[in-house]
């Protein structure tokens, strides 16, 4: 129930951002759209297992936005550098996150990190393509996973 309420509030906020009108008929249509979205969301993402607190996730947003700034800067630097310093390669990050929702959230967030791009899920973990194989990508990924796990305690495998 709380899940449903959280989502309802989030979608209602989204509607109000789009259409900040308090006229009754605008609100009525908004209510219909928000109810529909909440219903669809609950059907698609049942809150029972591996639940992701959307609110908690939103708290992580600013950090990853900042990461994406760094990532853009890094790529631009490499692209403009006359020597184009690249040492591309693949690394495998062994994650403890559950496959599916948690892991996909992780890869989506980490795809914004500088110099790494998730490309494949294997039994050993997630394969990343990196621009510079010598950087400490695995350590950084581990830090990010810890952050994600902090806000989503259920996301990890029970070992």
């Amino acid at each position: 129930m709380t899940h449903a309420l959280t989502r309802f509030v989030l979608f209602a906020l989204l509607w109000l951002v789009l259409m900040p009108s308090l006229l009754w008929y605008d609100l009525l249509i908004g209510l219909l759209a928000v109810l529909a979205a909440t219903w669809v969301s609950l059907r698609l993402l049942p809150p029972t297992r591996g639940s992701i607190g959307l609110l908690a996730l939103l708290m992580l947003m600013p950090r990853f936005v900042w990461q994406s700034v760094m990532a853009g800067w890094e790529v631009a630097w490499r692209a403009f550098h006359p020597k184009m310093p690249l040492a591309p390669g693949f690394i495998t990050y062994p994650t403890a996150l559950e496959p599916g929702l948690a892991r996909n959230t992780f890869t989506t967030l980490t795809s914004l990190l500088p110099g790494s791009l998730p490309c494949e899920h294997t039994r050993d973990g997630i394969v990343y393509h990196v621009l510079d194989i010598h950087q400490a990508h695995l350590e950084q990924l581990a830090r990010e996973e810890q952050r994600l796990a902090d806000v989503l305690p259920t996301a990890r495998h029970t070992p």
Partner: peptide, 10 residues
């Protein structure tokens, strides 16, 4: 893909 996504995001 790195170039396209990361630079354009920023």
């Amino acid at each position: 893909l790195h170039a396209l996504t990361k630079a354009d995001n920023l």
